[in-house]
Nucleic acid binder design. Sequence first.
DNA 1: ATTATTTTCAAACAACTGTTTAAAACATAC
DNA 2: GTATGTTTTAAACAGTTGTTTGAAAATAAT
Lengths: 222, 222
Amino acid sequence: MNKQIITKNKILNIAEALFAEHGFNETSLREITAEAKVNLASVNYHFGSKKSLIEAVFERYMEVFTNSLMNEMAMLEKDVQNIKTLEVLQTLIHPLMAVNHIRPDGSSVFMKLLGRAYSETQGHLRRFVMQKYSHVFLRFTRLLHKANPELSSESMFWRLHFMMGSFIFTLAGHEALQEISQSDFDRKVDIETILTRLIAFLAAGFEYSREQSDTLKHSTHQ
Amino acid sequence: MNKQIITKNKILNIAEALFAEHGFNETSLREITAEAKVNLASVNYHFGSKKSLIEAVFERYMEVFTNSLMNEMAMLEKDVQNIKTLEVLQTLIHPLMAVNHIRPDGSSVFMKLLGRAYSETQGHLRRFVMQKYSHVFLRFTRLLHKANPELSSESMFWRLHFMMGSFIFTLAGHEALQEISQSDFDRKVDIETILTRLIAFLAAGFEYSREQSDTLKHSTHQ
DNA sequence: ATTATTTTCAAACAACTGTTTAAAACATAC
DNA sequence: GTATGTTTTAAACAGTTGTTTGAAAATAAT
């Protein structure tokens, strides 16, 4: 009963690191089991299939992340009137840092996994995540809409996806970006600094983008 | 001499469609050659390897795209003073539409390929593209800097990457987004409409994002 | 101590991958 | 028409993949 947990966790720990580094399809069960020093068949025994292992790896992070995010959003909703776009986006920062409790570089792993999830395998994982945590996503978009009540739901839809693109892309590649920043500007940046810059960028795009159809609505920002 | 071109082109045409639809790793040479009705070995005979085939597929689009983009940028550079961020970003629209000359849905294929290129296989293709067309990329960033001379190169660096994220992500997934837009708002959108919205979003993010370090510099926009 | 249950293990399975080979078919030139 | 070069073809190669099997080992329950 104890051995089971040990083996299962050994697999999870190694798997998430390898998945984050090389991708899901590019990581074989043999690589995982070899590095975890467990038998090849134990993945299928404990998880059923590789696909289920991937979902299990992802779920461990999503659980922590979404719980924390729900908390943050609840706090923001306490004074409903006058919610700012920037504040809504800032609810993401703490949850993204909270996954460091899972492992020291948890944020980094989680972000890379997120990036992989959105690009690979024609989006099986994306759909799995989207429907399992749709209530979190919905609550977030509603908050964003409250911060920008004048926006049509069509504008909301598009800007939301533009945001997600930047977010996923930046987070998934944050390691490379950190290295470039280090060598080009001799400035080491931590994840939170990147997030702050990113969120400032997205808030501006979300609030101030002037589409031909609703230019007027935005002409009054100070 | 004629047969060679026919076979080579048959492979290219089928390959680019399958690559765009399912990804590079997820498309086998057997699928390509079967659908193109040519022999399996002909890919290795004409292109040398699968990797070279991928690059060839990509190059055909990049050639048209970058040529057109260089033209657009040259036109913009004619009156150097007073270049707007939005104008710089708009130079991308026509080149992205120009690849429709390669095939009817060329824009769609090219965008999906771009998305794949940035996510898959740990970035082999991304590096290949980046170094082959680095002069185009550099010219574009210089224009962007001219439109925002007050920005530090560090701010430039980050905002550029935030932009790229949105761009790649949105273009790669444009088909799904189009479908959702169609069903949710009963409004069919073409690629150019998405691009216009996207570019407006990015221009706002690029110009108006307020970082703690250089908030002052932006406090004067009208 | 003896069942019963769970977990590990080595081996094999079946399917798939990109690539190479050597002979056949085809085209071109003299 | 023979010779030369190019392209196509079927077959085999060598490697990888996720999954299954059935016996062995370890653990738990009686």
